[in-house]
């Protein structure tokens, strides 16, 4: 059962990577990267069950938090070209 789920997630991962390679815009790649992150977390959980080591879930939780921050950081970087961008500064200038 978990092997089936793992296989399905791997297929989905392959499709997401296809989208990341094809692009065409950087946002498509960010979206694909975020999907890869989500699928990686699910793969971690499933593999944890498959090998009888549910401790993998802790890693999955951490990865989930990093995935959110990573995606937002990349988006912010491409929007402003700077991670320490100050919105108020733009309003003042």
């Amino acid at each position: 059962m978990f092997a089936t789920a793992a296989a399905a997630i791997l297929v989905a991962l392959a499709l997401a990577v296809t989208r990341a390679i094809k692009g065409p815009t950087v946002f498509d790649r960010v979206l694909a990267g975020n999907s890869v992150g989500t699928l990686a977390i699910m793969l971690l959980a499933v593999v944890g069950f498959l090998t009888g080591r549910p401790e993998f879930l802790d890693i999955g939780l951490t990865y989930g938090l990093l995935n959110l921050i990573g995606t937002l950081a990349v988006l912010k970087f491409f929007r402003h070209g700077d991670l320490a961008y100050d919105v108020d500064e733009e309003a003042r200038s």
Binding site: M1, F2, T4, A5, A7, A8, I9, V11, A12, L13, L15, A16, T18, R19, K22, L31, A32, S35, L39, M42
Partner: peptide, 16 residues
């Protein structure tokens, strides 16, 4: 789990 696998793949197919 089969339903979950199905919808996971559907989402990825839609992505492409």
């Amino acid at each position: 789990i089969l339903l979950g696998s199905f919808f996971t793949i559907v989402g990825a197919v839609g992505l492409v």
